[in-house]
C-alpha cells in the first residue's frame, strides 16, 4: 500500500477524532466531556471536507457543532453537573440486559455492513453526489412536500415553546 498525502491528512484527522472521542467517555467532568465532543464533531466535519463531501461537512458543523452542542451545554448548565460523584452509577441488572441488546444489535448491523465493505477497494461516489446543488435540487423537486411540511413543524415548534414559556400571565 502506497502512502499518499491524502492518507496522511486522513490519518491525522481520524486519529485526533478517535482520541477526542475517547476523551468524551474518559473525562469525569461533564464540561470537559462536552468540549471533547465539540472537538470530535469538528474533526469529523473536516474529515468530510477531506473526502470532498462539502455539503456533509457543512451540515455536520452547523447541525452538530452548532445546534446540538448548544443543547448539550444548556442541559449541563441547567442540571449543574459539576461534581463527578453525581455521575457514578451503581451496578444494575438492567446494564447486563442493555449490553446484551446492544451487542446483538451491533452484530446484526455489522453482518449487514461488513460483507459489503470488504468487497470495496477504492470507494468512489458518482460525480456530484451529495453536492449542495444536487441536494437543493432534490429538496425542491422530489421532496418538496415533506420539505414544506417541515416548515409547519418548525412554526408550531416556535409557537408552542412560546405558549409554554409564557407562564402564569394574569
Amino acid at each position: 500500500m502506497k502512502i499518499t498525502p491524502d492518507m496522511i491528512v486522513f490519518a491525522m484527522l481520524a486519529g485526533m477524532a478517535a482520541l477526542s472521542a475517547v476523551g468524551v467517555v474518559a473525562f469525569r467532568n461533564a464540561v470537559r466531556s462536552a468540549l471533547c465532543l465539540v472537538f470530535t464533531f469538528f474533526l469529523l466535519g473536516f474529515l468530510y471536507f477531506a473526502l470532498n463531501m462539502e455539503m456533509l461537512g457543512i451540515t455536520q458543523i452547523v447541525v452538530y457543532t452548532g445546534a446540538i452542542m448548544v443543547l448539550f451545554l444548556f442541559v449541563i448548565m441547567l442540571l449543574n453537573l459539576g461534581a463527578s460523584h453525581v455521575l457514578e452509577e451503581k451496578s444494575d441488572p438492567k446494564k447486563v440486559i442493555g449490553i446484551g441488546f446492544g451487542v446483538s444489535l451491533a452484530v446484526l448491523l455489522a453482518s449487514q455492513i461488513v460483507p459489503v465493505l470488504i468487497k470495496v477497494n477504492a470507494p468512489t461516489a458518482p460525480e456530484g453526489f451529495g453536492s449542495p446543488q444536487v441536494i437543493g435540487n432534490v429538496l425542491f423537486t422530489d421532496y418538496v412536500f415533506p420539505f414544506e411540511a417541515v416548515s409547519i413543524l418548525l412554526l408550531l415548534g416556535i409557537v408552542g415553546s412560546v405558549l409554554l414559556a409564557k407562564r402564569r400571565l394574569s
Binding site: 421532496y143 412536500f145 415533506p146 411540511a149 417541515v150 409547519i152 413543524l153 408550531l156 415548534g157 409557537v159 408552542g160 405558549l163 409554554l164 407562564r167 402564569r168
Partner: peptide, 26 residues
C-alpha cells in the same frame, strides 16, 4: 405511503398535542 412523510406528519401531530396537553397552565 412514504415513511419520511409519515414521520414528519406524526411529529407535527404529536408536538402540537404535547403543547395543547399543557395548555391549562395553572
Amino acid at each position: 405511503r412514504n415513511l419520511l412523510v409519515l414521520f414528519v406528519g406524526i411529529e407535527i401531530l404529536s408536538i402540537s398535542l404535547y403543547v395543547l396537553a399543557g395548555l391549562h397552565r395553572t
